[in-house]
């Protein structure tokens, strides 16, 4: 464990807590893409299949349970909570995310570390996580004025994988045979997708104005 990875995990945890806070405090999920949340639930379930078979550390197991639990709770809340579900605007959340699931699964069938059930699903979850934010970014661009908590949620979600890139560089430099290419390349793509969001986030922060993404 290195500081970059720990910072990444904490930033990831913060992003999920910010989202839960927004939904719980405002009893609303307006501006949040249910499709992105569903993709994240699939990512965590597909990636943490080894939860009960491989023990790495208490930290690892606890964080996996938290990520799976929170992502399922958010999807449940947005779909079934009698108050919150009414604030979900499916007319703007129209990204066809099933194509992302299919595309990532097909890619995982061809590019993986080992052709085993668990490894193919692990690669699938890595690819899917890289593109899972797309429905949310599209929704942000569609719904002009976005509340602050939603913007913070997307910011922390983007920042966490940037920390992971530093972690992979650090591990590549310090561990002899560290070759985590699937995760590193997908992580670069994932962070690059946030590039324009980060740019407009920084501009809005500098001008102390609300985030305005170009439509």
């Amino acid at each position: 464990m290195n500081i970059f990875r720990f910072a990444g995990d904490m930033t990831h945890l913060i992003s999920i807590l910010v989202l839960l806070l927004k939904i719980y405090a405002t009893k609303s999920c307006s501006g949040i893409s249910l499709k992105t949340q569903e993709l994240y639930a699939i990512v965590f379930v597909a990636r943490y299949l080894d939860l009960f078979t491989d023990f790495i550390s208490v930290y690892n197991t606890v964080m996996k349970l938290v990520f799976i639990g929170c992502s399922l709770a958010i999807v449940w809340c947005m779909r079934l909570h009698r108050v919150v579900r009414r604030t979900y605007n499916k007319d703007v959340d129209t990204f066809r995310h099933y194509f992302l699931v299919l595309g990532c699964f097909l890619l995982a069938l061809f590019v993986h570390e080992k052709f085993t059930f668990q490894e193919v699903l692990w690669a699938f979850s890595i690819y899917l996580e890289a593109v899972a934010i797309l429905p949310q970014l599209v929704l942000l661009q569609r719904s002009g004025n976005v509340d602050n908590l939603t913007v913070q949620y997307v910011f922390f979600l983007g920042a966490y994988r940037a920390f992971y890139i530093l972690n992979w560089i650090y591990r590549y430099l310090t561990e002899p045979h560290f070759g985590r290419w699937i995760a590193s390349v997908a992580g670069l793509v994932q962070t690059a997708l946030y590039a324009d969001f980060f740019y407009y986030y920084f501009i809005s922060w500098k001008n102390n104005a609300k985030l305005q993404l170009p439509a």
Binding site: D9, F55, K64, N167
Partner: peptide
């Protein structure tokens, strides 16, 4: 429980 380091990251 086998200890693996194949995917030790979250």
């Amino acid at each position: 429980l086998k200890l693996v380091d194949s995917h030790d990251e979250l």
